[in-house]
Nucleic acid binder design. Sequence first.
DNA 1: GACATTTCTTGATTTGTATCAATTTAGTCG
DNA 2: CGACTAAATTGATACAAATCAAGAAATGTC
Lengths: 234, 234
Amino acid sequence: MSNENQLKKNGCSPSHQGCVSMVPIFNHLDEVQMEEIMQTVQSYSFKKGELIYRAGDTSNVLTIVNKGSLRIYRLSESGKEQLVRVLKPGAFTGELALFNETVHENYAEAMEETSVCQITRESLEKLLIKYPSISLKILQALSTRVDESEHQATQFSTESTEQRLASYLVDLLGEGNESMIVTLPMTKKDLASYIGTTPETVSRKLKELEDMKLIKRISSSRIKILDEDNLLFL
Amino acid sequence: MSNENQLKKNGCSPSHQGCVSMVPIFNHLDEVQMEEIMQTVQSYSFKKGELIYRAGDTSNVLTIVNKGSLRIYRLSESGKEQLVRVLKPGAFTGELALFNETVHENYAEAMEETSVCQITRESLEKLLIKYPSISLKILQALSTRVDESEHQATQFSTESTEQRLASYLVDLLGEGNESMIVTLPMTKKDLASYIGTTPETVSRKLKELEDMKLIKRISSSRIKILDEDNLLFL
DNA sequence: GACATTTCTTGATTTGTATCAATTTAGTCG
DNA sequence: CGACTAAATTGATACAAATCAAGAAATGTC
């Protein structure tokens, strides 16, 4: 942990109950088993802007988001920052350093007041042996992440900024959102970093999409999707 | 399997011995255990250009490369192809469709005469329960893949084509290659697709790097690295 | 609620890279 | 081996998006 002075450990708070019962990698187990896992899990909270870990740190814990959100980002060789993904409750990070006994390659930063649970390598390995279904859940999660990340890489290398922005908005919309209104979960600066462009270009492209009557900006962070099909068809 | 007529199944050939004893996810086990796994594994071979699977296919097997190489690529929404990675002996693919019981999102094509081993979901799940260390190996491999893919996405979004090409060449060089000569493992067309550019630009950038005395082209597919440090420092 | 600070937007300009077109080179096969 | 096909190179041009700069809006703070 890179900033021990800043975190609050609350070993027995009820908050990490949720942590176990809520996350996909554990919540398929029964009550007794989850109770057992709770004993092995530590809960911490971070204030906005605090780092859970940074690139280069060694670590032997898996970090699971309980409440709030984490910003996972990388720095390129030339020092530019790229937002890799945003972790919402139930998602985990730190698997690279954990499973490969190596250092972190990315940064995890609290985007708001955020509480996380951490489980050590030893505890997790014991659990994986005792409950192989947990392995399967983590394998599912990781293979999905590989897919998402490769999808993103493909978009970066083959699609225009406009297309990437448009499909990001449609992704945000998700299934069966009647209102057709999406709320941007991050600043435009982070959004730009996430889709691999600059804030200026995001601003301009949003205006273009609005001019084309594909979207309508409701407020600075709320956007109404007017024409989902043509957004994907750019 | 998308082209059953084209593949040759050779159930009892010695080739899939190697398949098990060679791959990182199994070769830490002892002889008897590997023998057991060999019983559950099927071996197939593919000719150059044949597809092992395509996007949209359902599948319940994990495919492990035994000999030869596979080209894993994706098509973007707009139909452009992007080379995601090249699988060499010991590497595996198909985990998304396997673990998530969903369809493939990418294509796997033999780059040359290639033999693979396949293991079904049922067999693998039994093995994972019996030998949890296999889970750990797969978790290691997948978390490394997530890291590599996110690294690539970050490069796409933050680095210039020239920098991406240069760091690709340095990556190819690897550790302790005395000769400082790398051999491109794919056509320039595939290389262009892999680093997210066009063949024309690859050609031009290689010339620029040569003009800068950072590399020297020996033959069409062999390149001598003259100045590793400055290649990374572009 | 007014001030300060960051974020966002808009404009003018530059630049990197894609695209199109034409050779040249390399690879393949009868 | 020469003919054919695909791959690679080179040049000219077009264009998307980054950069630089400045003002507007939003957000946070005392």
